[in-house]
Amino acid sequence: MSTESNKVKNEVLIRTLIDELTNAIRTKDVDRLTSCYAADTVMFVLAPPLQIKGNEGSSKKNLEEWFASFQGSIGYEIRDLHITTSDEVAFCYSLNQISGTRSDGSKTDIWVRETLCFYKINSEWKILHQHQSVPFYMDGSNKAAIDLKP
């Protein structure tokens, strides 16, 4: 198989994994979501702690708590997805919208920046690194700029 056709095939497989991750978030399926990650993944996500290594119990606990903070499903949309692949390593970046009604009745609608790094393990793509962030206002308030829209 040519290198170009390998890249196309790998991009399709990465998109399929991202779709799996997205659907798991929308349906609040912790096990399905964590199955997208490598055992030794490192995550820098929006909620504490500063980093999570591997599919630690704390990762599942954090996800369960986050999912429970929403009434019903979670809105999760990906915009401006860019994927780069090779035979064993890939990465992507995107702008992702998280929306929904919280358990207290308040509404959430924010955009975050995300970078995912993938590694092919036993012919299967897994997320090896995740980094999410929101910009912050540099006017001295240090407030997260969660009102920005693409």
Rank of each mutant, 00 (worst) to 15 (best):
V30W: 00
H82Q: 15
E65D: 12
T115W: 10
G54L: 02
E124I: 01
E77G: 10
V89C: 03
K9C: 07
I25F: 05
N55C: 12
N62Q: 00
A145V: 11
G75T: 11
A90D: 08
D87G: 14
I146P: 07
V30I: 03
I110H: 03
T85C: 12
Q130Y: 00
C36L: 05
D139Y: 03
V134F: 08
M1C: 12
P150R: 03
N96P: 01
I110P: 00
L81T: 06
Q132Y: 08
E124V: 15
G105N: 03
E77D: 14
M138W: 08
I98C: 02
F136G: 08
G54K: 00
V30K: 06
V45C: 06
S58C: 02
K120I: 04
L95M: 13
W66G: 07
I98D: 05
E65F: 03
S35E: 13
N96Q: 15
Y119N: 00
P135R: 11
L21M: 05
Q71D: 14
D29C: 07
H82R: 15
T115L: 11
D109A: 02
F118K: 07
D87M: 03
A68I: 08
C117D: 03
W125A: 07
Y137K: 14
Y76I: 03
S69K: 09
Q51D: 10
G140K: 04
T115A: 09
T16F: 11
D19R: 05
T3Y: 15
R32G: 13
V89N: 01
M138S: 12
E88C: 02
G105W: 03
D80F: 01
P135Y: 08
L148I: 15
Q97F: 02
I127G: 06
I98P: 03
E77Q: 13
D139E: 09
K107Y: 13
L46S: 11
S103R: 11
F136P: 00
D19F: 05
Y119R: 14
R113N: 11
L21I: 01
N55H: 10
P48K: 11
Y93A: 00
H82C: 10
S59K: 08
M1R: 12
T84C: 09
L13Y: 10
S73T: 14
Q132S: 09
S69A: 12
